[in-house]
Write a protein that binds this DNA or RNA. Structure first.
Length: 111
DNA sequence: CCTGTGACATAAG
DNA sequence: CCTTATGCCACAG
Protein backbone atom coordinates (compact mmCIF):
# COMPACT_ATOMS: atom_id res chain seq x y z
CA UNK A 1 0.00 0.00 0.00
CA UNK A 2 1.68 3.15 -1.08
CA UNK A 3 -0.47 5.25 1.08
CA UNK A 4 0.92 8.38 2.53
CA UNK A 5 1.96 8.37 6.12
CA UNK A 6 -1.29 9.08 7.72
CA UNK A 7 -1.26 10.12 11.32
CA UNK A 8 -0.23 7.50 13.78
CA UNK A 9 -3.87 7.22 14.62
CA UNK A 10 -4.85 6.35 11.10
CA UNK A 11 -2.15 3.73 10.90
CA UNK A 12 -3.05 2.22 14.23
CA UNK A 13 -6.64 2.11 13.09
CA UNK A 14 -5.73 0.24 9.92
CA UNK A 15 -3.69 -2.29 11.85
CA UNK A 16 -6.41 -2.77 14.43
CA UNK A 17 -8.85 -3.57 11.66
CA UNK A 18 -6.38 -6.08 10.27
CA UNK A 19 -6.34 -8.08 13.48
CA UNK A 20 -7.92 -11.47 12.69
CA UNK A 21 -10.92 -12.50 14.68
CA UNK A 22 -10.08 -14.57 17.69
CA UNK A 23 -6.63 -13.05 17.95
CA UNK A 24 -5.17 -10.38 20.14
CA UNK A 25 -2.33 -7.94 19.89
CA UNK A 26 -0.41 -5.58 22.13
CA UNK A 27 -0.06 -1.85 21.86
CA UNK A 28 3.69 -2.16 21.72
CA UNK A 29 3.50 -4.65 18.86
CA UNK A 30 1.36 -2.31 16.82
CA UNK A 31 3.49 0.65 17.69
CA UNK A 32 6.58 -1.26 16.68
CA UNK A 33 5.01 -2.24 13.42
CA UNK A 34 4.29 1.40 12.80
CA UNK A 35 7.90 2.23 13.48
CA UNK A 36 7.41 3.75 16.87
CA UNK A 37 7.92 0.96 19.33
CA UNK A 38 7.95 3.37 22.22
CA UNK A 39 4.73 5.07 21.38
CA UNK A 40 2.59 2.21 22.60
CA UNK A 41 0.64 4.67 24.70
CA UNK A 42 -0.26 6.55 21.61
CA UNK A 43 -1.79 3.40 20.18
CA UNK A 44 -4.05 3.09 23.16
CA UNK A 45 -4.87 6.73 23.08
CA UNK A 46 -5.65 6.41 19.40
CA UNK A 47 -7.90 3.47 20.12
CA UNK A 48 -9.85 5.69 22.42
CA UNK A 49 -10.63 7.86 19.45
CA UNK A 50 -11.55 4.86 17.38
CA UNK A 51 -14.04 3.66 19.92
CA UNK A 52 -16.45 5.88 18.08
CA UNK A 53 -15.94 3.75 15.03
CA UNK A 54 -17.77 0.46 14.82
CA UNK A 55 -15.27 -1.15 12.50
CA UNK A 56 -12.45 -0.88 14.95
CA UNK A 57 -11.97 -4.08 16.98
CA UNK A 58 -10.14 -2.23 19.71
CA UNK A 59 -11.10 -5.02 22.09
CA UNK A 60 -8.54 -7.17 20.34
CA UNK A 61 -5.80 -4.89 21.48
CA UNK A 62 -4.44 -5.47 24.96
CA UNK A 63 -1.30 -4.82 26.90
CA UNK A 64 1.83 -6.94 26.96
CA UNK A 65 0.45 -9.25 29.60
CA UNK A 66 -2.71 -9.91 27.69
CA UNK A 67 -4.56 -7.91 30.26
CA UNK A 68 -7.64 -6.00 29.18
CA UNK A 69 -6.40 -2.76 30.55
CA UNK A 70 -8.64 -0.72 28.32
CA UNK A 71 -11.89 -2.42 29.12
CA UNK A 72 -12.80 0.48 31.32
CA UNK A 73 -13.02 2.62 28.24
CA UNK A 74 -15.73 0.48 26.78
CA UNK A 75 -19.39 0.82 27.39
CA UNK A 76 -19.76 -1.84 30.02
CA UNK A 77 -17.46 -3.32 32.55
CA UNK A 78 -17.24 -6.62 30.73
CA UNK A 79 -18.07 -5.42 27.23
CA UNK A 80 -14.54 -5.94 26.03
CA UNK A 81 -14.38 -9.35 27.62
CA UNK A 82 -17.69 -10.28 26.07
CA UNK A 83 -16.56 -9.26 22.64
CA UNK A 84 -13.42 -11.31 22.93
CA UNK A 85 -15.26 -14.29 24.34
CA UNK A 86 -17.67 -13.97 21.45
CA UNK A 87 -14.75 -14.43 19.10
CA UNK A 88 -13.47 -17.49 20.88
CA UNK A 89 -10.97 -15.75 23.08
CA UNK A 90 -10.98 -17.03 26.61
CA UNK A 91 -10.70 -14.21 29.08
CA UNK A 92 -10.56 -14.64 32.82
CA UNK A 93 -10.24 -11.84 35.30
CA UNK A 94 -9.55 -9.38 32.52
CA UNK A 95 -6.63 -11.49 31.41
CA UNK A 96 -6.50 -13.37 28.13
CA UNK A 97 -5.87 -17.07 28.42
CA UNK A 98 -3.76 -19.18 26.04
CA UNK A 99 -2.33 -15.84 25.08
CA UNK A 100 0.61 -17.39 23.29
CA UNK A 101 -1.76 -19.32 21.06
CA UNK A 102 -3.90 -16.45 19.91
CA UNK A 103 -1.19 -13.86 19.87
CA UNK A 104 -0.99 -11.84 16.67
CA UNK A 105 1.98 -9.71 15.89
CA UNK A 106 1.64 -7.42 12.86
CA UNK A 107 5.40 -7.35 12.46
CA UNK A 108 5.25 -11.11 11.92
CA UNK A 109 1.86 -11.92 10.50
CA UNK A 110 1.85 -8.98 8.14
CA UNK A 111 5.52 -9.35 7.43
C1' DC B 1 6.91 26.55 20.87
C1' DC B 2 5.44 24.73 25.18
C1' DT B 3 2.40 21.89 27.99
C1' DG B 4 -0.54 18.23 28.90
C1' DT B 5 -1.85 13.72 28.19
C1' DG B 6 -2.47 8.77 27.54
C1' DA B 7 -6.16 1.68 26.95
C1' DC B 8 2.08 1.11 27.60
C1' DA B 9 6.73 -0.80 28.59
C1' DT B 10 10.43 -1.56 31.36
C1' DA B 11 13.17 -1.29 35.56
C1' DA B 12 13.77 -1.24 40.34
C1' DG B 13 12.52 -2.14 45.26
C1' DC C 1 3.47 -10.65 43.02
C1' DC C 2 2.91 -5.82 44.05
C1' DT C 3 3.67 -0.86 43.75
C1' DT C 4 6.28 3.07 42.36
C1' DA C 5 9.07 5.59 39.22
C1' DT C 6 10.77 6.91 34.74
C1' DG C 7 10.93 7.02 29.76
C1' DC C 8 8.83 7.50 25.74
C1' DC C 9 6.40 9.60 21.74
C1' DA C 10 2.84 11.53 18.82
C1' DC C 11 -1.00 14.63 18.82
C1' DA C 12 -4.18 18.49 20.53
C1' DG C 13 -4.76 23.08 22.22
Amino acid sequence: MSKKEASFFEDAKSVAKLIPKGRVCSYGAIAKYLGAARSARMVGWAMNSFLAEENIPAHRVVNRKGLLTGKKHFEGENKMEQLLASEGVEVIDNQIQNLEEIWWDPSIELL
